[in-house]
Every structure is written in C-alpha cells, then in structure tokens.
Design a protein around this nucleic acid. Structure first.
Lengths: 205, 205
DNA sequence: ACGATTGGATACCTTCGCTATCCATGTTAG
DNA sequence: CTAACATGGATAGCGAAGGTATCCAATCGT
C-alpha cells in the first residue's frame, strides 16, 4: 500500500505520517522507485501503536521513539525491555543528581527480596516521589510502602499471566509494552473508583 | 511576607509567581496599599503544592487549577473530591462521544459491588483504555479486569488508612490529593520493578 | 500524454509554560 | 527628605513540542 492508503486505514493524516517518518518513529517504506515507496501491515500496526502511546497515554514523540527502539532491540528478552526503558516514561527531565531517598529505595527492594536491575529508572522515580511527598509533609516510609509493594507483586503477576500464551516473541514484546504502558491509566482509574467506594464504605452512614 | 520572600522560600521565581497569580492558581495576597500585597504561609504551602503537581507529576497548569479549585470546594466531603475531579487528569482532550465499552465498565462496577458516581471520569478513562487495547489486538475483558480491580481495592484501603489520623478536614483533603496524584508514578514504578522481578522468577534458569 | 499522487524538503502555525521588560507607585536606608 | 531599590500590574516575547501547509520534481494510472 502507498501512503494515502496507510493514512486512510490508520486515520492519521499523510502530513503527520511524514512527520513520524522524519522523526524516526516509523520505518521508511520499501522503495519501489526513486520517488515511490510501498508500506505494509507492519507499518499500519506500528502506526496504531504510535497513536496509542502518544494519544491515549500522552507520551511525547521523543519518549515514544525510545520505547519503540527498545522494542526492536529487546524483542528476545522481554522483561529487560520493561525494566530498562519504561521507567523513564513519567519523568520530564533527567535528574542529574542522586535523590536523597535512593538508599532507602534500595533497602526496600532488598527487604522485598526483589531482583531489580541496579540502574532501573523506576528506582529513581520511586525515590523522587518519596522525597517530594515528604517535603510536603506527607509521612512516607518503608512501613507504608511495603504493603503497596506487595500489591504491586499481585499486579505484576496478572500482567505476566497475559503474556503466557504468546509463542511469537515479537508479539509478546509488543503486548508487554501495551500492557505496561496503556494499562496504567486504567489501573489508576480503578484505584480512584475503589477509593471512592472505600471512602463511602468507611464514612457513609 | 512580600513576593520576593515568597519566591526565595519556595524556590519559584517572582515572574513565575506572577504568572500563577494571573492564571488563578494562587490566590492574590492581602492588599496593604494600592500597589503592595502581603502573603502568608498558606500561599507558600499552596505554591509548593502547585510545583509538586506540575513538576513532579507533570500536570498542565489548567488541570492543576481545576484540581486546586476542587480542593477548595470539597474540603468537607473528601471522597467526592477524589472521584469527581481527578478522573480527568490523564485525559488530554474531552471525548465528546460515548465510548463503546462504557456499558461494559458499568457492569464491571456492578459486579464488583462498588458505589461509584455515575459521572465519575474514571469510568470513561477505563472504557477508553479497553477500547484502545482491543483495537490493538490485546484481549481485555471482565475476567482479566476483575482481579486487577480486587487489587485496586487493596490499594484504596491503604490510601484511606493514611487519612485516618487527620482531624483537620483541610489537611485531610490536601493529603488525599497528594496521595492520589503524587503516588501514581510511585505505584507504577513499583509495578515495573515487580514485573521485572516476576519475569525473572518465571523465566530465569 | 496528462492530471493526480508520491516522497522529500522547508516554512509556518498553535499551544504551553514560562521569562523579560516597562512603568507607576511604595518602601526604606542614610 | 530624598535617592535607590522593591513591588504589583500589564504586555510582549521566547523556545520547545507537535503538527500542518506548501512547493517541487518525479512518477503512476489511464
């Protein structure tokens, strides 16, 4: 298919597709002549993935490119993909200096018995949040965090369950990505509804 | 205190403080004369809250204003605050038309036995995510979602536990806001680390 | 053969979150 | 008292992000 069909089938305008090509989010089509290229279903699929990450989840184009690059690179070892790349998603800028709560996060991970890569960006995200909450007067220590972490184990187990019946490693990697990133707003939505319910249960007459 | 002291103590530049005043994020100080105003600790506290929401969590200025307005309005009935306002946080634009998965979300909420306001934006967020994931070929139905929802109940219970020992309703409302919004990246970070750990546990030799 | 489409390049546009500059009024140190 | 400096208020500008619009020459379909 050529670009106009790709545009029609994906709902993304031709100029935007060109923009994604320029930004390296989408691989160029197969050249059939000097000024003509042919696209296939993988491009269509990729394009829908891009729109899901940027539109639904609100990732920046730059972050989306990093995530997609990591998807290409780590198709074999799925869990590395998740740990290494997606931690940087919610951070706006790179934090050059080390957060004061870093050591505390380390001891929490140890207490949990988790095997987590030393340089996983999720560690820094966690440390930053702790520091930020404390500076605003919200007490947040190991005792509070530990039960949250146990529940996170449960969530992770559910996540992994959904990758079991996928023989194709490429498809597994893509689904892992989708589940990790796109499910985030849904999980937070469930949390908010559960909060409302629990609040009503506790305080209602 | 006057604006320069507010600036020094908060680490926010005077021009930015003026910008927040203009945008209605920060209440004007008490006028002491025609061209002079006095600020107090509530302004400082509010300013730190604004920086936490916009900087740490990445909320837009417009969303932050909505959230803060809701904080003012619903200081008494804390749980309403959470349900009604924060659902719109992760959405970029207003979705005018109803999502096809709306009915499904409704039956899920019913099956869970949750009391959730009919117009809670979290419902729409959940429905959108379902639709989006499905269009990308990821199966996502009631059976998959239900265990996630049960874990969300656990998270909500932990959240509410942390509001118990706060007699001042204003402080309780503010902490509810901070916990709901600022803890989100931390929870997602825990999830990613737990995924990495669980993946290693299942697939490692 | 000829109008429509394509790839490729470049310029431009809008929104967001500040930032810089002006200016008239106020405060304050000497 | 007065001169230097700070303040509130208004307006204009800036840089990044995410597209969009326009040109152009080559090429395709008929």
């Amino acid at each position: 298919m050529r670009v106009s069909e790709l545009s029609r089938r994906s709902g993304v305008s031709v100029t935007t597709i060109k923009y994604y090509l320029r930004e390296g989010l989408l691989a160029p089509g197969r050249q059939t002549s000097a000024t003509q290229a042919e696209y296939d279903d993988r491009h269509l699929r990729r394009l829908r993935l891009i729109r899901a990450l940027t539109g639904v989840r609100g990732l920046s184009v730059a972050t989306t490119r990093e995530v997609l690059d990591a998807l290409e690179a780590h198709t074999g070892d799925t869990h590395l993909l998740l740990g290494l790349t997606l931690g940087s998603v919610s951070l706006s800028g790179e934090s050059a200096e080390q957060d004061p709560a870093t050591g505390e996060v380390e001891s929490l991970v140890e207490e949990l018995g988790w095997h987590v890569h030393e340089s996983a960006p999720a560690r820094a995200t966690l440390a930053e949040t702790l520091t930020s909450l404390r500076s605003l007067g919200v007490p947040m220590d190991r005792h509070v965090l530990l039960p949250y972490a146990r529940l996170a184990e449960g969530i992770a187990a559910l996540d992994l369950d959904q990758l079991d019946d996928l023989p194709d490693p490429l498809e597994a990697a893509e689904r892992a990505l989708l589940l990790t990133v796109l499910l985030e707003p849904a999980l937070m939505a469930l949390r908010r509804m559960a909060q409302e319910n629990e609040s009503a249960r506790r305080h209602a007459p």
